[in-house]
């Protein structure tokens, strides 16, 4: 397998002009107040063709700055990037033809036009032959169930429908690489499942390389075989997601509600992190079934629920070590 994305010692430093009061502003005229901020600091990695990679990190860690450098929107301060054999900052337009992007918060669809018209316009922006676009669209109508709202103006779509529409838009020109930024944000369970199914299929069947940024650990667990973790601009983990989870434990929490308040439950491999009347929160890393059985044997249980940790919590634990 060849590397589709190569980043070597990638760095981006922003220079911020400090905003102060009027007096500072007057002085600034003579001597600018500058502050440097290293958004991405010496990051190196490779992504092979056909991989599905999670790119994780807290807000402001440098995720979107990295993606912007990989797409050529931003020029790196130092280091080297190559994507699909192109230099993104010099060959942005050529690269854009081979890349798709979805920002969960924004849309590239035409707000007041029927969804179908957006695809027709994007087809021309990306110079996709009509027959090719038609066959792609047919596939997406099946996979994403677009049929019901293809002729509805985008502004009337629900969030889940709009996201499905945006996904189809990003894959329409058969990109070899797609960046997804929070594609499931704000979606309900059913819509999330549909998005995940689609992404898994595009990756497995079309061989599209996908880089996914998400706060939803379940997204990453179900889709990505590999995770890159960035914090304060530095790459702190690069490897199988399973390794990360194994290193840190799944970190699930079992919420136990008992008939009457009982003293903290003591079981091997678990830890009570919080109690509130008859409710207790048990952190555990092992097999959920075994822990549930042990709890049920120890106390009179009214209700049990399992809470999945967020990406933030997993990463927070990574740094706690």
């Amino acid at each position: 397998m060849s590397a589709l994305v190569e980043a070597e010692h990638l760095a981006k430093t922003f220079v911020r002009r400090q905003r102060g009061g009027l007096r500072q502003g007057l002085r600034r005229g003579l001597r600018p107040v500058r502050a440097e901020h290293r958004a991405v600091d010496d990051v190196s990695f490779e992504i092979a063709e056909g991989e599905f990679v999670g790119y994780l990190g807290p807000n402001g860690a440098g995720k979107s700055t990295t993606i912007k450098m990989l797409t050529g929107i931003l020029v790196p301060s130092s280091g080297r990037v190559q994507v699909a054999g192109l230099d993104p900052s010099r060959q942005r337009v050529e690269l854009a033809r081979r890349v798709g992007v979805v920002f969960g918060q924004r849309t590239q669809l035409w707000w007041d036009l029927p969804l179908r018209d957006s695809y027709e316009l994007l087809r021309h922006v990306y110079r996709v032959p009509a027959a090719d676009a038609a066959s792609q669209l047919d596939r997406f109508v099946d996979l994403l169930d677009l049929g019901a709202f293809l002729d509805t103006p985008v502004r009337q779509l629900s969030l889940g429908q709009r996201m499905r529409g945006d996904l189809a838009a990003a894959f329409l020109h058969r990109p070899s690489l797609v960046y997804l930024d929070e594609p499931t944000i704000g979606l309900d369970v059913v819509a999330k499942a549909a998005v995940r199914r689609f992404l898994a299929a595009e990756n497995a069947e079309q061989g599209t390389t996908i880089v996914l940024t998400s706060h939803d650990l379940a997204d990453v667990e179900r889709l990505c075989r590999r995770a890159l973790v960035i914090d304060h601009g530095r790459l702190v983990h690069d490897g199988a997601l399973a390794d990360l989870v194994a290193r840190l434990g799944s970190g699930r929490t079992l919420v136990v509600t008992t008939v009457d308040p009982v003293p903290p439950i003591e079981l091997p491999g678990t830890e009570v992190v919080r109690t509130d009347g008859p409710k207790q929160w048990l952190r555990f890393d092992g097999n959920p079934a075994a822990v549930i059985a042990a709890v049920a044997a120890a106390v009179d249980v009214v209700d049990l629920t399992i809470e999945e940790p967020s990406v933030e919590q997993v990463i927070a634990r990574l740094f706690a070590r």
Binding site: T71, I73, R92, V93, E94, A96, R97, R106, V125
Partner: peptide, 17 residues
Amino acid sequence: AGTFDTVLLQPRSSLLL
């Protein structure tokens, strides 16, 4: 709003778009 980034992600002249 950051929407100009969307323009830069498309394979055409940003001024034209």
